[in-house]
Simulated assay, not measured.
Amino acid sequence: MGPGLFIIMIAVGAVLTFASDWELEAVDLDLVGLILMGVGLLGTTVCAGVLRRRRMVVPPVAPTVADDDRRGLL
């Protein structure tokens, strides 16, 4: 699941909560919309954290010089 899917979940949840006037006896669409928005926000946050951790730049390791190599240069 990428960040796009979580953003779509937030949008669908907002539409169900704020823009729809459908009435179902067995399902509270306002609650379903709030749940979708919450899961979308949580997923976006987790996905952004994982992507940021993957993109960390690790500096290259400096080559080590052995003591024997230094004595030959002096």
Rank of each mutant, 00 (worst) to 15 (best):
G43V: 00
L51D: 11
L31I: 10
M9E: 04
L42I: 03
F18N: 10
V12M: 10
F18K: 09
G33A: 01
I8W: 08
I8Q: 05
V39I: 15
A26P: 05
L31T: 11
M9F: 05
A48K: 08
L31S: 11
V50T: 05
G43T: 01
F6W: 03
A11S: 08
I35P: 01
L29R: 11
A19R: 13
G49S: 06
M9K: 03
I10S: 11
D30K: 15
E25F: 14
L31V: 09
F6D: 01
F18Y: 15
L34T: 02
L42E: 00
L36F: 07
L31E: 13
G40L: 00
L34E: 09
L5G: 07
V27M: 10
T45N: 07
V15W: 12
G38H: 04
D21C: 11
D21R: 15
L24S: 10
A19M: 15
T17Q: 14
V50I: 07
E25H: 13
L41D: 01
L16F: 06
L42D: 02
V27T: 09
L36T: 00
V27L: 12
G38E: 02
L31G: 05
F6Q: 00
G49I: 01
V32M: 10
F18Q: 08
L34D: 08
G33I: 00
E23C: 10
V12A: 15
T17F: 15
A11F: 11
E23W: 12
A48T: 02
A14M: 07
T44Q: 04
L5A: 14
V39H: 06
G38R: 02
W22V: 13
A26N: 12
A26T: 06
I10D: 08
W22S: 14
A11N: 09
I35V: 12
I35E: 06
A14D: 12
L24M: 12
L24Y: 12
I35M: 12
C47Q: 14
D28T: 00
F18P: 04
E23P: 01
L16H: 04
I7N: 04
T45H: 06
T44L: 06
D21F: 12
V39K: 08
C47N: 14
V32K: 03
M9G: 08
V32A: 11
